[in-house]
C-alpha cells in the first residue's frame, strides 16, 4: 500500500509539473490521488528524505531529477500495462486505465520488459497497418486480427474535428508523415472527409491521406 501511495504522489507531481510547469501543493495532490492531505504530507516528507522531491518556501513540492526518473519509470509501466490490457485483452479504455493504475505499482521491471517485448512482436506493421496484408478494401482492418483498438485514430474523426496527435504507429509511411509534421503533440484539423479519405490541415498545409494511413495516427480530440 505504501508503495502505491508513494508512486501515486510522484505521478501526480509529475502530471502537475507537465501541465503547469510549477510544483504541486499537498492539497492538489490529495485531490488528485484521493488520499487524505495528512497522508500526502507524510509521504512527501518521506520522499524528501530519500531525495526524490524538494520542498519550496511557498509550500509547493518539486520533483528532483531522481524523482523525475522514478516517475517516468512508473509512467512507462502504466503505459505498457494499459496497452496490453487494451490491445491484447480488448478491455475498455477506462477500465484498462483503472486497472493499469493499480497494477503499475506491483509489476516488476522484468514483467514489464517481457510484456513490452510481447507487445512489440505483435505491433509490427502487420497489425499496425492493415493495408500490409495486400488486400484491397478497408474491411481488411477488422478481419485481419479480429479486434479493434480502443484508441481513437484519425480515421474515426469527422469534419471539423480538432485533434492532437498521441502517437503514430510505425509503418511504411511513418517517415513521410513525420516529415510533414504529423508528430506526437501536433495539432491537426480534419477539414474534409470523403468516404474514408481525409483532408487534414497540419502546420497550415492541407494533406490528403488514405484511410489505412489515417488509422495509424492515434489522436486525442481537443475542444
Amino acid at each position: 500500500m505504501v508503495i502505491a501511495e508513494r508512486e501515486d504522489t510522484l505521478l501526480s507531481l509529475m502530471r502537475q509539473a507537465k501541465q503547469t510547469g510549477l510544483g504541486g501543493k499537498p492539497e492538489d495532490i490529495a485531490c488528485h490521488t484521493g488520499l487524505s492531505e495528512e497522508r500526502v504530507r507524510e509521504i512527501l516528507s518521506d520522499l524528501e528524505k530519500t531525495g526524490e522531491v524538494t520542498h519550496q518556501e511557498n509550500g509547493t513540492y518539486h520533483l528532483s531529477p531522481s524523482g523525475i526518473q522514478a516517475a517516468e519509470v512508473i509512467m512507462r509501466k502504466h503505459h505498457v500495462l494499459e496497452t496490453f490490457l487494451q490491445e491484447m485483452l480488448g478491455m475498455d479504455h477506462e477500465l484498462a486505465h483503472a486497472q493499469a493504475c493499480t497494477m503499475e505499482h506491483h509489476a516488476t521491471d522484468d514483467t514489464i520488459n517481457r510484456l513490452r517485448r510481447f507487445l512489440r512482436k505483435d505491433r509490427g506493421c502487420q497489425v499496425g497497418c492493415p493495408a500490409f496484408t495486400g488486400l484491397p478494401g478497408h474491411h481488411g482492418y477488422m478481419g485481419h486480427h479480429g479486434r479493434r483498438c480502443a484508441f481513437k485514430s484519425l480515421a474515426d474523426c469527422s469534419n471539423g474535428d480538432k485533434v492532437r496527435i498521441d502517437a503514430v504507429r510505425g509503418c511504411g509511411r511513418g517517415g513521410r508523415l513525420a516529415d510533414l509534421g504529423l508528430v506526437p503533440g501536433e495539432r491537426v484539423t480534419v477539414k474534409q472527409r470523403m468516404a474514408d479519405t481525409l483532408l487534414i490541415n497540419v502546420k497550415d498545409c492541407d494533406i490528403a491521406i488514405s484511410p489505412e494511413i489515417a488509422r495509424s495516427v492515434l489522436v486525442e480530440v481537443e475542444n
Binding site: C129, A131, P136, L180, I207, S210, I213
Partner: peptide, 13 residues
C-alpha cells in the same frame, strides 16, 4: 504480390 501503402499527398492551394 506485394504491399500497399496508401496515399499521403499534399494538396496545394
Amino acid at each position: 504480390p506485394g504491399t500497399q501503402l496508401g496515399m499521403v499527398l499534399e494538396v496545394p492551394p
